[in-house]
Design a protein around this nucleic acid. Structure first.
Lengths: 287, 287
DNA sequence: CAGTGGTCTAGACCACACT
DNA sequence: GTGTGGTCTAGACCACTGC
């Protein structure tokens, strides 16, 4: 062995890695060892933040996902190939992929490969919908009926702009719809989407679609929702909600306000759902 | 090297590992390769379920935790020591500990050691309380005031028995309390606890205690809550809740029904909380 | 069969905390 | 300095999938 054992040190993959593999790049010998992250100016002369190799690899993979090099459902290169591409050992790539897999960005399938996670095609559809029937033995049902109430183009209010990281007055889309199970309305949702990425979204597009809305977003607009944060409250139904959900005014409803993010924590959807919970509940696991 | 490279095969640690390390045990040479898990009788001649070594190690560590060999807050033996004890490599122990750490059963602290997780003493107190103020910049507050309404000994109803894996009529404890923030009542909780493990729990014990109730359970009763499942609904305040939470009858409240488990998925607490959510919300992250 | 992820090992070195 | 967890490598072999 010409190069025995561990070679920890601090290397900076970011600075010297080609976008695609090729022959050994020339200026690569002495390994100049620049810090992975520069000191973001300001006070705190602090430590330059040591970044392990596998974290850098993770960032690079993330970058490729974001750039669309591999699309939802695609198989990414094997660990061995990626190791060659990034000039690290397979184990290091493995650790990076492990973390991306636990974040649900990638899905490993033994014997087949590693795939970009998707909201479509997976057996676990409606991954972000946590409303379950009280009784039904975990019978995970997709919403039987949906009705699009409206899909309007308008300008962002200060509040919506803030949450979607836009400017007040920027163009946005608003969608309002009702989901029903077995003929009984259960969910009333309002969505606010940034106008840019979702240009061309219409009532027809939404109405024609079966399957999860996030799957539609992936295939039609290239927008992949990666994580979300929900704020849950109990509220009384106002006149509008009461009518659309077929409950008396003042009836208690679960208000679920969701902010959903794509890669790199970019907010891409604000959603407010009102759930009827007489015979269903929002399920959550703590640990 | 006398024993080069990988030694995967299938080994069964469970069958041959002493509780504590000693000199090399005699009957260890040829590695008899018994299946880790026998075919649990029945149909399905199926595969005996291959179990990786690190999973077996994980089970063994779990067993020690459950048996109280290491108590909440304790440091467990180093990876190196555990590797010697279980006669595997450090890397295998590491993988087992990794999983236990992501399950929040253990906490790794670089340079110090690996510790048994606890609900006490951690900076992240009230780990299972997801109610946050709408405005306050994440100002995580412990409930300022608590008032124990009652603590009764009684017999389990069919429903409570089912959920706590007891038999109808088994002795249980019921606790009712109110939590308030800044003088304003916010949470009304009913708890049902199995009588056996919590023998001796009184209003006084509860009233005298500051800090998280789960910390009290650990120190006084040796019961450690490991995970929980919550079912959330919107309900209208009944007369009792209205009085105790100082809201009008019919006011919308968040109903949070929690079943909490110790090690090995043994249910140990059923809890039903009613939350006021006019200026607070239940926060949840999806991914 | 080859290719992929999954497990296991052994050893070197780094970062961190305490003494 | 010593001991702990954390990173990285290299290589062998196992389990699963599909050709």
């Amino acid at each position: 062995m010409s190069k025995p054992g561990g070679t920890a040190g601090s290397r900076d993959i970011m600075a010297t890695t080609p976008a695609f593999p090729s022959e050994p790049s020339p200026a690569d010998g002495p390994d100049t060892t620049a810090p992975a992250f520069g000191d973001a100016g300001g006070m705190a002369p602090a430590a330059p933040a040591f970044s392990p190799l596998y974290q850098q690899i993770k960032t690079l993979i993330l970058r490729s996902l974001q750039a669309g090099e591999w699309k939802p459902g695609d198989m990414i290169p094997s660990e061995f190939d990626l190791a060659a591409r990034f000039r690290v050992s397979q184990g290091t790539v493995r650790k990076a992929i492990d973390e991306l897999a636990t974040d649900n960005l990638l899905v490993r399938r033994q014997g087949k490969g590693t795939f970009v996670a998707t909201h479509a095609e997976q057996h676990i559809q409606y991954r972000f919908l946590r409303l379950l029937p009280d009784a039904g033995n975990l019978a995970q049902q997709g919403p039987a009926e949906r009705r699009i109430i409206e899909c309007r183009r308008l300008r962002a209010s200060a509040e919506v702009a803030r949450q979607l990281a836009l400017r007040t007055g920027d163009p946005i889309l608003q969608v309002k719809r009702v989901l029903a199970f077995a003929g009984s309305p259960a969910i009333l949702e309002d969505l606010w989407l940034p106008g840019g990425p979702f240009k061309g979204l219409t009532v027809e597009t939404l109405s024609d679609d079966k399957g999860p809305m996030y799957a539609l977003f992936e295939t039609q607009f290239g927008v992949r929702m990666v994580r979300a944060v929900e704020k849950i409250k109990a509220v009384a139904a106002d006149a509008d909600a009461a009518r659309l959900l077929d409950v008396p005014e003042g009836h208690p409803l679960l208000s679920v306000e969701r902010l959903a993010y794509t890669y790199n924590d970019v907010p891409m959807e604000l959603r407010r759902g009102l759930y009827r919970t007489e015979s269903r509940h929002y399920r959550n696991e703590l640990s």
